[in-house]
């Protein structure tokens, strides 16, 4: 079984929909999902570290390494060291990350450099 401590507050359905619409095979779908997974993991770590005093960064990382699935222990640690309940803040950060990724996934009008005319 695989679980990360923030899995219960992340809902990137639209991102998964967008990826499914594009992927032409299961392998491709899994590859794209893996890339998004990596983006989310790095972003979540960055957002959590933004909220923690620097002296507690290693404590968080150690917990994340030891028990990455343990939502209660990790959130307790972060809340205690940051002095507030950051769960809602992190949920909002995740929504923003989702919008960011969706923005990347939405087709844009590519313009040819040579002619200045849309490639569509």
């Amino acid at each position: 079984m695989s679980k990360l401590f923030f899995d219960n507050i992340i809902m990137f359905e639209e991102v998964d929909k967008a990826i499914k619409n594009v992927a032409s095979s299961t392998e491709e779908l899994n590859e794209l999902r893996d890339i998004v997974d990596g983006i989310v993991n790095h972003k979540v770590v960055e957002k959590v570290l933004d909220k923690l005093p620097k002296e507690h960064h290693e404590g968080f990382l150690a917990l994340f390494h030891k028990c990455p699935h343990d939502e209660v222990t990790i959130f307790e640690y972060i809340n205690q060291k940051s002095g507030r309940d950051i769960r809602e803040e992190l949920e909002n950060d995740l929504k923003s990350i989702s919008s960011d990724i969706l923005h990347e996934l939405s087709p844009k009008d590519e313009v040819s450099e040579e002619t200045g005319v849309s490639k569509k």
């Binding site: 899995d7 992340i10 809902m11 990137f12 998964d16 999902r33 998004v36 997974d37």
Partner: peptide, 9 residues
């Protein structure tokens, strides 16, 4: 196979 873990499902 799926859904992705970050869909909340």
């Amino acid at each position: 196979a799926g859904p992705a873990a970050w869909t909340g499902k």
